[in-house]
């Protein structure tokens, strides 16, 4: 079972806060981490390897420092890691990202399953997985919450939808995105950390992938960010004053006025 796990390094936005005075991001103490949704993808990949043998390759497109996320992936059980990094990759939208990843997957060769997280914490689009599957022309299943069985070149999985879950069968190779319900990711081990420190992580650039520069990064992106701004929160609210009982009374009055009670 050859598994490829796609992951992204993101700022740990659980800690991202806005400075209310300046309306800017408070960056202090923010570390870059593996996108939390991708940790479930990695864990599932490692579990598949433990169940069926084979190997797990972690793959990430990003700036040079994204190597840190790949080292962590190795400490968590990935056998190999590949960093796709080139100045030309910067500014990629989901299409250009999926295209770059697809080129790297094709260069890597044979695989059975590609696992991605359901979305990233920063971009939050959830589009790269499905786009990747189309570029590789393989089946795709989103929001997988359980891999039930893999046998005879077929996999049977459960995937979550709003109303419940569906059981879906797909032939290998296939691309899936996973949700956090699928597993509890393990913590790194000391031996894994030692191994990850000496792991050789190749960096693949535009010439390595043999891709057209105009198809990757900002140049290859069909969507362009034209404006970035901080959401303005205008406080027009009314904070009631006085005794608590009176405040509740005031609130009741307002809700009655609005026809809600």
């Amino acid at each position: 079972m050859n598994v490829i796990v796609c992951l992204k390094q993101v700022p740990g936005t659980a800690q991202v806060k806005i400075d209310p005075e300046t309306n800017t991001l408070i960056r202090e103490g923010i570390e870059n981490v593996i996108n939390p949704f991708d940790t479930y993808a990695l864990e599932e990949g490692v579990r598949l390897k433990e169940r069926f043998g084979g190997k797990v390759t972690a793959m990430s497109m990003g700036p040079p420092q994204a190597e840190g996320a790949l080292r962590e992936a190795v400490s968590l059980g990935a056998d190999e890691a590949i960093l796709l990094s080139d100045k030309a990759f910067a500014g990629a939208d989901t299409w250009a990202t999926a295209y770059t990843l697809a080129s790297a997957v094709n260069k890597l060769g044979q695989y059975d399953i590609i696992i991605c997280g359901r979305q990233t914490l920063d971009g939050d689009t959830g589009q790269v997985g499905p786009e990747l599957s189309e570029m590789l022309e393989v089946p795709f299943v989103a929001y997988v919450s359980r891999i039930e069985e893999i046998a005879d070149g077929q996999m049977r999985v459960q995937r979550m939808v709003e109303e419940g879950h569906e059981v879906i069968e797909a032939p290998l190779p296939t691309v899936i995105t996973v949700v956090k319900e699928i597993n509890v990711p393990r913590l790194p081990s000391l031996r894994g950390i030692v191994k990850s420190k000496s792991a050789v992580i190749p960096v693949w650039t535009v010439p390595d992938l043999g891709v057209d520069q105009s198809r990757v990064g900002l140049a290859g992106s069909f969507t362009k960010v034209i404006k970035v701004f901080f959401p303005q929160r205008v406080c027009q609210g009314e904070i009631f004053q006085g005794e608590l009982g009176n405040q509740v009374e005031c609130l009741m009055g307002k809700l009655k006025d609005a026809g809600l009670v």
Binding site: T13, V16, G123, D124, I226, K227, V228, F230, P231
Partner: peptide
């Protein structure tokens, strides 16, 4: 929204 709603981005195609 991106970055968990911390930043808004306007995008065109």
């Amino acid at each position: 929204p991106t970055f968990g709603g911390n930043i808004m981005a306007t995008i065109i195609c």
